[in-house]
Structure formats: C-alpha cells, structure tokens
Simulated scan of single mutants.
Amino acid sequence: MSLLNPMLGSRIKIEISGRFLPIRGTLIDIGTDIIVVNNGTQYLYLPVLHIQKLEPDDSLETIAAAGGDQEQMFDHTDISYRKILMNAKGIFTEVGITGFQSLHGYITSIMNDYFVFFSPVYRTVYVSLQHVKLIIPYAPNRTPYYLSRERFPLQPPGITLARTFDQQMKKLEGELIALDLGESPSKIGLLKSVDNRLVELVGANGQHLYMHGEHVKTIHVP
C-alpha cells in the first residue's frame, strides 16, 4: 500500500464498485487492506478490495477542512479492515453495502468471514465481509434515528453463530429469509437448501431460485 503514501493529506476521488457516485475527500491514512478518507464531516473507512479507481481530485467542488465537527474515533496505528470492525463494535455505525443500500445500527459479533449487525429496521443481519464497501462510525452520543439506547440489545439473546458465512446460511435452512436486504422480490423466500455454496430459495409463487453463495451480501430473517 506504500504506492499511495505520496497522496496522504491530498484531496482524492474514489470510484467504488457498486456505488453510483464517486467519494471525494482527504486521504487521511492507509492500512494493510483499508484506507481512511475524511469528506469534511465524516471519517470513511474503505476496504481496498472495492476500489475501482483512485485519483487526485482536481474538481472545483469545495470540501470542508478534514475533521469537520467529528473527531477521529479510532486509533489508526497499524490499521486493518478487521481491526476497524473490532473498534466499531458497540458504536453506532453505518455500513455501506451498495450505492443505494446502507445499514444503520451496531456491529455485535465478528466471525471468520462475516459479522453480525443489529439494525432497528432489519433487526439481526448477517453481513459478508467481502461485500462491505464502506464503514462510517458516528459520535458516541448518536443513535440510529435518534431512538433511545434501550431499543438496541447489543447482544440479542438466543442466537448461536457459526464460524463462516456459508455455515451460518446452512443453519437457516427452513427459515423465511431475505437476501441482500430484500433488494429484489426474488431474493425473499424460504431457504430450502445450501449445498456446496449453492443456495436454493423458494419464492412466494413457489418458483425455485438458485444462486452462488459468493454473491450473497447479507442475510436476515424478516
């Protein structure tokens, strides 16, 4: 990642896979598999896996001075994607999945290749690590939708977790689930089977849908 060192402190423009608008801001720090950008009001943590293009931003668009009204919340010493996730546990966080899908809530558990996210809208969501586009932590006094903290059980009872995303999907066989936050009606249905990473879903009309687990971004039980 030393290739990016000359750009530290500079304004950059980043195109992220699955996002429709480029991200603009100041490059604050570089980790082993993640970079930190400040857009003037927020610190954005971007896994490098999804960076399609990064270049100097020579546009005339004005960006506020780095930092804005939010302090840097995490220690950036030897930062990595997993370390940022660990630091974000229990903190109100926004997790970007696609250009038009974000989760707002709390990371509660981090497993081998996925983490568990509690959202006031979707409740418990299992999120594949490889599909996260950005992580934005909020100030300690903030809560999603300004709801009271009592509305958020940071360790929901009765949930046993598998080590991997595939194994967790397997545990949900026979459940009515929504994949990828239900972005398409075809991704909501009965999880019939998970076999060798191939997922079989039965839709409301009884039609069977098959997809490879590699493409599943999130799972939750409505």
Rank of each mutant, 00 (worst) to 15 (best):
D166G: 14
Q207E: 09
D75F: 12
Q70M: 09
P56G: 01
H208L: 08
V132F: 06
L191K: 10
V48E: 02
A66V: 06
V202M: 13
K83P: 02
D33L: 10
T62Y: 03
K171I: 08
Y122C: 03
R151A: 10
P120S: 02
T160I: 11
I79K: 04
S59Y: 12
T98E: 09
S59R: 12
F92V: 06
E175Q: 15
D180F: 00
M73G: 15
I107D: 00
H131T: 04
V125R: 01
A204Y: 14
P157I: 07
T93I: 08
K192D: 14
V132E: 01
S2H: 00
D33V: 12
G68Y: 02
Y43N: 03
H220D: 04
F152R: 11
L27I: 09
V116N: 07
H220F: 14
T93N: 09
E71I: 11
K89P: 01
F165V: 11
T160S: 15
Q167K: 15
S148G: 08
L147R: 14
K13D: 00
M1E: 00
M73D: 12
V127Q: 02
P6G: 03
T218M: 00
L181D: 13
A65N: 12
L27G: 01
L49G: 08
V48T: 07
L134N: 07
I159R: 11
Y126M: 12
P56L: 09
Y122A: 05
K187H: 08
E200F: 05
G25L: 03
V216Q: 06
D33Y: 05
E200I: 01
Y106M: 04
Y126P: 09
L129N: 07
Y138G: 01
Y81F: 11
S128R: 14
G67A: 03
Q42R: 15
G105C: 07
R149I: 04
K192M: 06
Y114W: 02
R24V: 01
Q207Y: 07
G9Y: 10
L27E: 03
M73E: 13
V199D: 05
F92W: 05
S10A: 06
E150W: 13
D78T: 12
R11W: 01
K217I: 09
L54G: 02
G9K: 00
F165T: 10
T108G: 12
M1Y: 00
K13T: 09
M73S: 15
I107R: 10
I135P: 05
T164D: 05
R19C: 08
K13A: 00
V221H: 03
I23W: 13
I34C: 03
D78H: 14
G90K: 06
H104D: 01
H76A: 11
A65F: 07
V216R: 06
R24T: 02
D69A: 14
R163C: 00
P156Q: 03
G9W: 04
H104A: 05
F118N: 13
K170P: 02
I188C: 06
